[in-house]
């Protein structure tokens, strides 16, 4: 099981902070998430910066049971 944490507008739009999903790759995770949550589109997910276990990762990355995935939409300005 993969723990997915959502941030920024992804979290505000979906109303979800954290959820668990079964997936073997990031690409599969995106498919599962978009199926599971209406407000999470694949386009939005692919627009996020992706961290797997705290490290910046890519869409092709493989996932293992217990991994933590963090998804952040683009931000700037302070």
């Amino acid at each position: 099981m993969i723990t997915v944490k959502l941030y920024g507008l992804l979290r505000l739009d979906s109303g979800i902070r954290e959820l668990s999903v079964e997936a073997a790759t990031v690409a599969e995770l995106y498919t599962r998430l978009s199926e599971k949550v209406d407000r999470l589109t694949k386009k939005d997910l692919e627009g996020c910066v992706l961290l797997v276990n705290g490290k910046v990762s890519s869409r092709r990355a493989k996932l293992a049971d217990g991994d933590v995935v963090q998804l952040l939409p683009p931000v700037a300005g302070g």
């Binding site: 941030y7 920024g8 507008l9 910066v49 939409p73 931000v75 700037a76 300005g77």
Partner: peptide, 14 residues
């Protein structure tokens, strides 16, 4: 999107 809805505060998580 980001600045109107989260303000500069939206940067904390990133």
């Amino acid at each position: 999107e980001q600045l109107p809805r989260l303000g500069t505060a939206g940067l904390v998580s990133s």
